[in-house]
């Protein structure tokens, strides 16, 4: 066991005029995650601390937050990898609802704006699966990994300054369908994506790629979307 010091940004907009930092000292085990330290606070020191979490192993996307300046999922980040002085803040660019809980509505609105579902005529009843070669399937594999945690979008400097930009996560979803050989809406998708608030908003800062807990090559995906728009599809 060892001791870590957590500096956590606290804010309840119904009570506080502005956010403030609060410090907690907690005992942790060698292999503990940052999420374990947060639980230690909420369960044993201060039950008012609000943060989302669910699966606790990096697949549900609930606990994205800013840890020592970087967007990370608290459940896959080990304390031994971040050190014993840990500053934790809510994701930037989305309104804070309480402490580390941000308002995800805008994020999911932007997700919906790229029409994130397969556009294809349903095959006639009774038909088998559509064929798709392993190579065609591999073409969009990377962007199917997205868990909608918003770590990428809230790391993007363009998004911080302009929340009408759909952000990297929505573009990742756009990529996932644009490059799916079964999708039949290429032109429609290009119309949605061909603008400064969508594919052309990216300034290739690569923050999103660094932030992605699923190791999706986010900036590359956005670049591929742009090239596809310029090419007018396949």
């Amino acid at each position: 066991m060892s001791t870590v010091t957590l500096h956590i940004e606290r804010f309840d907009p119904t009570v506080d005029r502005k956010p403030h930092m609060q410090t907690y000292v907690v005992e942790v085990a060698e292999d503990d995650r940052v999420l374990d330290a947060l639980h230690e606070v909420r369960w044993h020191q201060d039950g008012t601390l609000a943060f989302r979490r669910s699966c606790a192993h990096g697949v549900c996307g609930s606990d994205a937050m800013v840890v020592n300046g970087h967007n990370r999922l608290a459940c896959i980040l080990l304390i031994k990898d971040v050190g014993h002085e840990i500053t934790i803040e809510p994701m930037r660019g989305l309104p804070v609802l309480k402490d580390l809980v941000v308002d995800m509505r805008q994020f999911f609105d932007q997700y919906r704006s790229v029409q994130p579902w397969l556009h294809a005529e349903p095959p006639p009843p009774g038909s088998r699966e559509r064929l798709q070669s392993p190579e065609e399937r591999a073409r969009y594999d990377d962007t199917t990994k997205c868990i909608l945690c918003a770590a990428c979008t809230t790391s993007c400097p363009v998004y911080w300054s302009n929340d009408r930009f759909v952000g990297p996560a929505a573009l990742v979803l756009a990529h996932r369908f644009l490059f799916d050989s079964r999708d039949e809406a290429t032109a429609q998708r290009h119309d949605i994506l061909d603008g400064r608030m969508a594919a052309w908003g990216c300034r290739t800062a690569f923050n999103c790629t660094d932030a992605c807990p699923r190791h999706i090559k986010v900036t590359q995906a956005i670049e591929e979307v742009r090239r596809d728009i310029l090419r007018g599809g396949d």
């Binding site: 397969l118 070669s133 392993p134 065609e136």
Partner: peptide, 12 residues
């Protein structure tokens, strides 16, 4: 048909 990206056999 809903779009799920199953892994595929060599013949698709």
């Amino acid at each position: 048909h809903f779009g799920l990206p199953f892994n595929r056999t060599p013949d698709g």
